[in-house]
């Protein structure tokens, strides 16, 4: 067992873990933050995307120990109390989900995309950037719409 500590959604956490523990296992099984999903477990689907030091990464393909000392944000860390993050609200308003399994990863990917590329995103850019996120339900159309709207809403929220 090896000691690990990190900030998760603004809270300091530490634990003794098996070195094999993936970040997603640490989040779900040790911290009980089950909003981050495991879809494929083979680095393909993006259901497990979280932010580590601001970068969107696949938490099924990252060791928890590599994140020692890092700042991690999961889907649970986006809302402010009862107020949804603008990107979360946009997914709801635009019917950007059906079963919701892919949604945490989609939203974490989308928020980092806005942080990286700004709030004015055309449809082509959004589709290209979603390359690492699979959805089995929606056909993507409303996800793309939601991300465009969420990006605009993030701009207004920042003003």
């Amino acid at each position: 067992m090896t000691a690990v500590s990190m900030m998760v959604n603004g809270q300091h956490v530490s634990a003794e873990i098996d070195p094999r523990t993936l970040l997603v296992q640490f989040l779900r099984e040790h911290l009980r933050l089950t909003g981050t999903h495991v879809g494929c477990d083979t680095s393909q689907c993006g259901c497990c995307v979280v932010h580590v030091n601001g970068d969107a990464i696949k938490s099924c393909t990252t060791l928890a120990l590599t994140c020692d000392g890092a700042e991690v944000t999961t889907i649970e860390g986006l809302a402010k109390g009862d107020v949804l993050h603008p990107m979360q609200a946009a997914f709801r308003e635009n019917h950007g989900l059906q079963c919701g399994f892919c949604t945490p990863g989609m939203i974490m990917t989308a928020v980092e995309l806005v942080n990286r590329k700004g709030t004015n995103l055309d449809e082509h850019t959004i589709r290209e950037e979603l390359e690492g996120n699979l959805c089995r339900c929606t056909g993507y159309h409303n996800i793309v719409k939601a991300i465009g709207a969420g990006a605009q809403a993030m701009a207004s929220a920042a003003e």
Partner: peptide
């Protein structure tokens, strides 16, 4: 790959 792969 994709953006998350490129981030790591």
């Amino acid at each position: 790959g994709d953006p998350a792969v490129r981030n790591k």
